[in-house]
Design a binder for these strands. Sequence first.
DNA 1: CTTGGAATGTCAACAAAGCTGACGTATTGT
DNA 2: ACAATACGTCAGCTTTGTTGACATTCCAAG
Lengths: 168, 168
Amino acid sequence: MPEGSSPPMGQSLLFLTDEQLRKGIEAMFFAYRGFTADPDRILAQKSYGRAHHRAIHFIHRSPGTTVNNLLSILGVTKQSLNRVLRTLIEDGLVASTVGTRDKRERHLHLTETGAALERELSDAQRDRMRAAYRAAGPAAVAGFRQVLEAMMDDETRHHYEAMKEKTE
Amino acid sequence: MPEGSSPPMGQSLLFLTDEQLRKGIEAMFFAYRGFTADPDRILAQKSYGRAHHRAIHFIHRSPGTTVNNLLSILGVTKQSLNRVLRTLIEDGLVASTVGTRDKRERHLHLTETGAALERELSDAQRDRMRAAYRAAGPAAVAGFRQVLEAMMDDETRHHYEAMKEKTE
DNA sequence: CTTGGAATGTCAACAAAGCTGACGTATTGT
DNA sequence: ACAATACGTCAGCTTTGTTGACATTCCAAG
């Protein structure tokens, strides 16, 4: 493993060793499993998948969002999103209404049923997140968020920042 | 971060509000995309996928590991892993040798070619992780790891801890 | 020693969810 | 009038997960 910074590194750079970075990578991998585990269990019972969860989550966050906007947030193709969206609309979890200003657009909202599922899913996911936050403490949480934000692609971070500001 | 000066709840619990938890959830979602983006690009060129990356990573970490052991680390079915493993073996990236003590087992090692790909992938992933770590600083990194560890399932954390101790 | 069950790994077939490409329709804006 | 945009859909392919069936190997009870 050829690594540039070998000899006289300051103590403060210890966290940049390949070993430390590898641990971070593995932590990210294993933690993401836990992160999705609880919603996945709920979704499996209702024969939905993670893709449905993501759509529901962001429609809840941005009620009235258009298909195109959702597309760029989720980073998938419209064909892929459409399949998921179609089943959610058929099952009555999502309402799609023609735009008033621009009739080409479809505005997406959660129905009562959709909102109920959203709550069930995010409650489960928040419970785990809350437990992790509580165990780690406020300082750790601040660091957690900082590192995650620094890890995003620039374009992705743009979406994240936009969502972030929406409710504060 | 212009937040948190208003609510009437104890300052120390501010990080446990639903709003904060939701931000953490979205940060996790968006950051994971960045986390896998660079390896994904490399893998796509060679017509491999994320599953191949994971197998290669953990075979590199635990040379001589058995299929069963790899299975429990990755958390997939043996049939799913087998498909990935078969192409890696056919392509000469992984060597599978029959166990000496127990001939039912197969011991897995990376070949030279396999090790080369592993280096390419983990270099790319480490580069991004390093940039994120550097931007966030050592204290944030410690918090990042703490929260991730607290987020894991118990069984998963067991695997993580085992890997962690392996090289320190 | 034999034999039946458990463990390990392989093959086959199917499902979820991503992708590309092509095309149709309605609407907008130049 | 016409090009561009937003959306939906069909067809087909890939990756990666799943279950079910099966071969091989080991071990322990009879």
